[in-house]
């Protein structure tokens, strides 16, 4: 079979297996034949590319208009995901969403006692009433106390020390993420940006377990804003979450005239690891305890 017939059969897509073998040999050996075949392929590709190019142009034009918007939407989706995570956590905490709350039974262990939250609606209402009454009584007692200035001074000293510690913590700190948050919160509080400080705390603890540090940091924000009741409750929450040293001491100082005060101070003093903390020792000394 001559090269002309072979080429024609190739163009017509009619090559048999044997002819294909011959074709490949000729293509490798005969430069003129190769050039002819390549030229034909270019022509075919050119013809095939005509509709492709117009579609490519059409897609390119839509792309120019749509792509920025599309990436913006993807980023917005990420923001919505984060916002909903925050919103739903807040909803569960505040108990607005009863259907979610029904499913949730949180058990908090502290000092051998167990608190059941969300056991039943009746229990929740009764507990809320009791809490309101006890808070009102505590507040009343608290405001009548003559030692108010003393604990405020003590806690202010503690606040300043912790702030200083946060602002001077080194990069080698194993808990650098939390230290950065602490520093940010105190910086924001220095700038009277309490709301932003709260946002920073909430944001950080979306991705971190809400241990006592969460409540303690919030307590400082309340403290800085002279929201004593909320600060006390937050310190108490930090104690319930396991901080049996500093938060317990702060909380104790804020309820100095209550019967519980002496018991809490004793617990702190009997805890050897607490007494290793310089801040604990200095607070107790300053208060003559």
């Amino acid at each position: 079979m001559n090269s002309e017939t072979l080429f024609n059969r190739y163009v017509g897509g009619e090559l048999s297996a044997d002819e294909q073998k011959l074709f490949d040999e000729l293509y490798d050996q005969d430069t003129l034949f190769k050039a002819r075949v390549d030229h034909h392929q270019e022509l075919v590709q050119g013809i095939q590319a005509i509709p492709d190019q117009s579609i490519r142009q059409e897609v390119g034009e839509v792309h120019q208009v749509e792509i920025k918007k599309t990436w913006d939407n993807i980023e917005f989706e990420a923001d919505v995901t984060k916002a909903l995570k925050f919103k739903n956590q807040e909803t569960i905490r505040s108990g607005e969403d009863t259907s979610l709350k029904k499913d949730q039974q949180r058990v908090t262990k502290s000092n051998g006692r167990i608190f059941f939250i969300g056991q039943s609606k009746v229990f929740a209402i009764a507990a809320s009433i009791l809490l309101v009454i006890s808070l009102a009584l505590t507040y009343n007692w608290f405001t009548r106390s003559s030692g108010e200035g003393i604990w405020q001074e003590a806690l202010t000293q503690a606040y300043d020390q912790i702030k200083q510690g946060a602002q001077t913590s080194g990069l080698a700190d194993p808990d650098q993420g939390y230290r950065n948050l602490q520093k940010l919160v105190f910086d924001l509080l220095d700038q009277s940006e309490s709301e932003k400080a709260m946002v920073a705390i909430e944001g950080y603890f979306i991705n971190h377990p809400r241990d006592f540090t969460y409540h303690q940091l919030k307590a400082w924000v309340y403290f800085k804003n002279k929201k004593w009741d909320q600060a006390r409750t937050a310190f108490q929450a930090a104690v319930l979450e396991g901080d049996s040293c500093l938060s317990k001491l702060y909380y104790a100082l804020m309820i100095k005239n209550s019967q519980e005060f002496g018991k809490l101070i004793l617990e702190v003093k009997q805890n050897a690891s607490c007494m290793e903390l310089e801040l604990v020792r200095s607070l107790l000394t300053r208060q003559g305890l």
């Binding site: 989706e77 990420a78 995901t81 984060k82 916002a83 925050f86 946002v199 909430e202 944001g203 979306i206």
Partner: peptide, 24 residues
């Protein structure tokens, strides 16, 4: 769904997230 490790998700919680939660 964008997650916390999503290339499109920023690490920080910002005011815009609070705003989205509010407008939601």
């Amino acid at each position: 769904i964008p997650d916390d490790n999503s290339p499109e998700g920023s690490d920080s919680f910002e005011e815009k997230h609070l705003l989205i939660a509010k407008v939601f």
